[in-house]
Design a binder for these strands. Structure first.
Lengths: 244, 244
DNA sequence: GCCGATTTGTCCGTATGTATC
DNA sequence: CGATACATACGGACAAATCGG
């Protein structure tokens, strides 16, 4: 997989920051000093840095330099951020993840499903209901809808390991972006049962609803993830854009 | 305020997309056709487009074009996304926002406060507790800590209208980025009282904890926002970055 | 399947502006 | 004021993917 130059530089700088190679709160070496090191143009280096800005790793200050504002993440609870499969985030969180399939159904979207998911009426879908556990503790109850035409050949076996791995490695699909909405909802009896919750303790949970697109511009997945509140932790770095 | 060229183009395209000028799900005019229209270089146009990608408005497909994937947002509940003051988001949500000050205290960070906020022990701070209401309904209970040296001259009057407006317009501070963590927590008696909640209904709420930085690289604000669960809605567009 | 036209992706070099020191 | 550092903008070159003939 031939990575692009700016991505290579981005990853190298990211790693150096994470490993503490650059002092916390201080300025990184200037662009002009990094250019000969990486043997690239100024544009390419700046592109790498702008990704670090997006990640909240550094902050650029005109006339001064690029400040390292990286803070190591608290790893005590299950942290989510970008688009990740459960398998990937389990690995990142250094935990052992297991998945249990509750339902695996093929269906055709009717008015109600269409309303709920955004898929057109008549679309052929897979509906999968799964529980993801970390270190044996059930954390997430997932309701997935996949567009059959974009993700053909799904099986319960694949759903039990990693759907994204299958889509990307076997079907060579490129997953691009995901529109997500986070809300807090009352727990249902299903939640209570499979997430082993007690209504007398928490009576709600964190819900992430997402519409995910591939590189053909097709919305191929609709998912509702219901998270145990006491382990849910969503991380984010937001950039301020002056009003207007 | 002289806006940059790419930002002007970005806003123009964004507005055109929102107003439905480009058909939903279809390709936008090609870069080469837009360049003469905006009288800019290819790089500048591409920069504008890449912001639209980040916003989840469009998706670029190599060899094909730029697809409009904008979907109008449901405006029934109070939606948050980027870094916004309550005043700004009230306006964006087309509602009337009011703010009530519960506490306005100047304090010096001790070990406990330092642990909680990330400010160093001994830092001079403003601590402000506020309730934000929309259309008369209390939605958010805010605990703000501002670094006095970076945000001098705060008053209850300012806190009642808009602190960000004061910081940006009067102090000419540039707010840059905010590291946020979203969790779900049990409601406290304070929440119950000021957000007019009933423990027998929802017994938890959405909490956003944020560390906010200005253009001097100073973390000048720590805030914990506690949101009524039934009105809370956080929106996001995530981009997939291949694992590794 | 091949080829050429179109379209986006990457990369380079350069010039100029603006903020900091 | 000059030197340094990041920000914006331009133009050009080539690569890679898509699509139609």
């Amino acid at each position: 997989m031939p990575k692009s130059k700016y991505e290579t530089i981005y990853k190298d700088l990211k790693l150096k920051i994470e490993s503490g190679e650059f002092p916390q709160g201080e300025l990184l070496p200037s662009e002009n000093s990094l250019i000969p090191i990486y043997g690239c143009s100024r544009n390419t280096l700046r592109r790498a840095i702008s990704r670090l800005v997006t990640d909240g790793y550094v902050q650029t200050i005109q006339g001064k330099g690029v400040r390292n504002i990286f803070i190591p993440v608290d790893q005590t609870s299950y942290t989510i951020g970008g688009i990740e499969s459960f398998k990937e985030s389990s690995i990142r969180n250094r935990k052992v993840g297991t998945t249990r399939i509750l339902q695996f159904i093929e269906l055709t979207a009717d008015e109600r499903v269409s309303q709920r998911t955004g898929f057109p009426v008549g679309a052929e879908l897979y509906y999968i209901q799964r529980v993801h556990s970390l270190d044996g503790k059930p954390l997430i109850l997932n309701h997935n809808y996949f567009l059959k035409s974009a993700a053909p050949g799904l099986t319960p076996e694949i759903a039990a390991s990693s759907i994204y791995e299958y889509l990307e490695n076997s079907l060579h699909m490129t997953i691009v972006n995901s529109k997500r909405v986070m809300t807090v909802e009352k727990i249902t009896q299903i939640d209570e049962k499979y997430l082993e919750l007690d209504v007398n303790d928490y009576n709600c949970l964190a819900v992430i609803t997402s519409h995910t697109y591939n590189s053909d511009g097709v919305m191929f997945e609709f998912t509702q993830s219901r998270h145990r509140p006491d382990y849910f932790r969503f991380q984010d770095n937001a950039l301020r854009r002056p009003a207007g």
